[in-house]
């Protein structure tokens, strides 16, 4: 079997172009695909629902999305809540069914200072 692991950087290429179909073409055909940095409803990616788009580009696959990051991104229109979640996470696609899946939120540490060239030099 062929397995692929690919951090797609939410479809943003090293050439600065946003194009999820390029990522889909690179993984298409593998038996099991593990993606990282797949998102839903972010301004930088047209508020796209990327798991949905990828599943349409890869119609032969079962899939499960694991949104480790999840925030409200809802609207209210005419008094009705249009519920949406801003999400970021991992995705598994498989030619064989994914019998069950679980999302594990890993322990994290909050950073106080962003990573800058100056601090990088200091750490080096």
């Amino acid at each position: 079997m062929k397995l692929i692991s690919y951090n797609i950087q939410y479809g943003y290429g090293s050439d600065g172009r946003y194009d999820l179909s390029r990522c889909a073409r690179l993984v298409d055909g593998a038996d099991i695909i593990a993606l990282q940095e797949v998102e839903r409803h972010w301004l930088r990616t047209n508020e796209d629902d990327q798991p949905e788009i990828l599943s349409r580009l890869l119609p032969g696959y079962y899939w499960a999305y694991g949104p480790a990051f999840d925030m409200d991104a809802s609207d209210k229109r005419d008094g009705r809540v249009v519920n949406r979640r801003r999400q970021f996470g991992t995705m598994v696609l498989s030619k064989l069914p994914i019998v069950w899946s679980r999302l594990h939120a890993l322990p994290m540490h909050r950073t106080l200072r962003p990573l800058t060239p100056a601090t990088r030099r200091w750490n080096a």
Binding site: S5, Y6, S14, C23, L26
Partner: peptide, 12 residues
């Protein structure tokens, strides 16, 4: 160039 990473392929 589709991402800042390259795809990793495993044949198993």
């Amino acid at each position: 160039v589709a991402s800042d990473h390259f795809p990793l392929s495993i044949d198993i």
